[in-house]
Design a protein around this nucleic acid. Structure first.
Lengths: 337, 337
DNA sequence: GCTACCGATGTGACCGTGCACAAGCGAGGA
DNA sequence: TCCTCGCTTGTGCACGGTCACATCGGTAGC
């Protein structure tokens, strides 16, 4: 049984050249699709490559070109359904373009941790970073970093100036709120996400926009932490006050916890209170009552982010995408009052 | 505004050496914690490193050592709660040991796709692979590959011969089934995972073991696909036959869908049927009725897999872990009949 | 027929690091 | 005092690619 140490050296570009009877540079040209190569020369080289089962050494290539063909994913939200789904899209799009993907998940979102994470990715020579840690403060840190690496956040994927929020999130939240209004609700609470999250802000803005437009009273939002557990406690607390008939939660987990809290407190959904969530996680359709929510295409979000990032890396103009539309999925948890 | 091209060359080991007044090799020794370096020399070098803000070029290091200090994650299950949570553990453990992580998710689990994915990771020079695509057939492909790269699957993390199933899964499934038996159920169905998934097989075995031991009848398992949607259809179908009083589902998503199916068909959980799931996803505690399930520590699973893989890479003996225990979380969905 | 140019290929240097080997130096034993 | 040994440091090369430049043969333009 051969151990790793006695394993033969991998064939190099020069081994291929020797077998094909050409220079190593010619092999390199074949590998990089250089235009001026005679077809028969190219065929000889390709033959030798397959005979030797040659595969280019990416480290050597990265060393000389100082491009790694690798993207970094900086994530603070792994485990959540949405971002995780986006990662799939990011990877697919990246691999399609010949990039590999190195993920790094943030233990905390302190400036120090973010800085350390970016430096780590820079060490790994990534060509760009997709940021899935969409706290507002991440921007400040990234902008202020000494290492200037192209980066993109998922929230900018729908265009605009690169720092602003995604219009889709606002539109989706607005649609959710308008749905509640159209059902006759006029006292609608918002269970928001954490303070400095871009998505949380966008969804809250959509909520506020819809209410203001309909001349309805707005309530100070309850700040949650995205978790079902928080929603549960919020539901129990809220059931004490009865000045509302509907709640728009900033994500499905909180919405599901919220319904649980209401249930424990004796409030029935949707009879006493309507609830709408956001994200359309796979179980949203199956909980009791099934959850009205806003569906969005997370993988596509990731794919777009990669395209924008690659354009930035290559110095091309950023691709223009139409707004990624969200769709309202009406289910049992929302009803006319 | 400086563009990427005019950005100054990064400082190299020789720049540091020049500033510190030593040879480049001495700097290299400092970086690699070589034992015989005079403290004052080391201090000089470290000074120069921080002055220049020097960071080692990992590509160059990978080239010369033919070690990338990078692990690959081969995943077919991203988006599922469990594996995704394990990825967090994998990354943490890997970074802790100075390894970075390159993830690759499988579009399909055909032998060709698996082979291509492994070759891709091999190209990227990863030192080892953590496999999160726990189909049985993946083993055959990996074993038969020409590139022999150390690999580990999450299912082997609890020890044994490297191909066998994780004992925890069996024990967890057994505990879930015994829980139902202790509640007085004697006709217990199993909603299993897909055919060639190791976890599906383990959980089914635990179920069968418990029933056989209690001398209770076993039913042919229903083969699902892990999704809540499948659980929903299964629930509707199953409600036609009334020869059972409890169902053990191989994961929480299917269990939640199943309860939905039962609800639609007029069966009440747990009054008419008890349901137990597996995984303890975050919403399991909050659905109605809250779901009795088996909790397991996914991140720890990932961490252990990394330790085993690194031992293999370094040629050390595999660390011995006690079985990772699973705990039954009893909630509302299971009750005495 | 001579020159300029272009397409196809080869030559040598270089990217930043680690390894093998050598060399200098001081201490300790014969 | 001399030799050996161990600690500390330096020198040169190798890793596997790409890039800049040189070379060579053929062809078009005058």
């Amino acid at each position: 049984m051969p151990t790793a140490s006695e394993r033969a050296r991998m064939p190099s570009i020069r081994d291929v050249a020797r077998l094909a009877g050409v220079s190593h540079q010619t092999v390199s040209r074949v590998l990089n699709d250089h235009p001026s190569i005679r077809p028969e020369t190219k065929a000889k080289v390709l033959d030798a490559i397959s005979v030797l089962d040659y595969r280019p050494n990416l480290a050597a290539r990265a060393l000389v070109t100082s491009k790694s063909n690798m993207l970094g994913i900086l994530s603070a939200t792994i485990g959540e359904f949405g971002p995780t789904s986006s990662i799939v899209g990011i990877e697919d799009a990246a691999r399609e373009e010949g990039y590999s993907v190195s993920t790094l998940n943030l233990p905390a979102t302190t400036p120090e941790a973010i800085g350390a994470a970016v430096r780590q990715l820079a060490r790994e020579q990534v060509d760009g970073i997709v940021v899935l840690a969409p706290q507002v403060r991440v921007f400040h840190v990234l902008r202020g970093m000494a290492v200037d690496l192209p980066f993109v956040t998922l929230q900018t994927a729908s265009g605009s100036d690169g720092v602003s929020h995604s219009a889709d999130q606002v539109a989706g939240a607005r649609a959710a709120t308008e749905h509640l209004i159209s059902l006759g609700h006029s006292d609608i609470l918002h269970l928001a996400g954490p303070q400095d999250w871009i998505e949380a802000e966008s969804r809250m803005r959509g909520y506020l926009d819809a209410l203001r437009e309909a001349d309805l009273p707005t309530f100070p939002p309850i700040r949650g932490d995205w978790t079902a557990d928080f929603g549960f406690f919020a539901g129990q607390e809220l059931s004490r006050r009865r000045d509302f008939t509907a709640v728009f939660a900033a994500n499905d987990q909180m919405a599901i916890g919220l319904m649980h809290g209401f249930r424990v407190a004796g409030l029935r959904v949707p009879h006493d209170v309507s609830v709408v969530g956001f994200d359309d996680i796979p179980v949203a359709a199956h909980v009791a009552p099934s959850l009205t929510t806003v569906h969005q295409d997370f993988p596509e979000l990731g794919r777009r982010a990669v395209r924008i990032l690659l354009a930035q890396i290559r110095g091309e103009a950023a691709p223009e995408f139409g707004a990624l539309h969200t769709t309202l999925r009406m289910r049992e948890s929302s009803a006319a009052r």
